[in-house]
């Protein structure tokens, strides 16, 4: 049997100039062109966007939830990367 299910696409919308594209959801479409048209009709019916990206969901690589700890741990003990790690006398201005 032929599978007539259209592939899934993730949709990203730039709400206005100066902002990043943000993930808003997903939709089904036969190809990228149709995905863009559907995304416009589905996610920007009220001027919510000035630009849209679509990407096939099966093309998105994601960090896995199971490895979350090991994956993000390396930054955990590097407190010296934050400005608040350094003590500066209150009398020093603009720093």
């Amino acid at each position: 049997m032929i599978n007539h299910e259209w592939p899934l696409f993730e949709v990203f919308v730039r709400a206005k100039r100066g902002l990043n594209h943000v993930h808003v959801g997903s939709l089904r479409a036969a190809d990228h062109e149709m995905a863009l048209h559907h995304a416009r009709d589905l996610y920007t019916r009220r001027n919510e966007g000035v630009s849209i990206w679509v990407v096939r969901s099966d093309q998105v690589a994601s960090s896995s939830a199971e490895d979350k700890q090991a994956f993000f741990e390396p930054s955990g003990d590097k407190v010296y990367r934050h400005p608040t790690y350094y003590t500066i006398p209150g009398s020093v201005p603009h720093i």
């Binding site: 007539h4 299910e5 899934l8 959801g25 997903s26 939709l27 089904r28 009709d41 589905l42 019916r45």
Partner: peptide, 26 residues
């Protein structure tokens, strides 16, 4: 017409959410 189109949109936002749990829209 706009209202009924919104209902379709709401259905699709929700099917999209269901698919994140491994459900299949079709």
């Amino acid at each position: 017409l706009a209202k009924v189109q919104d209902e379709a949109g709401h259905g699709l936002y929700l099917y999209s959410a269901a698919e994140t749990l491994g459900a299949d829209r079709g």
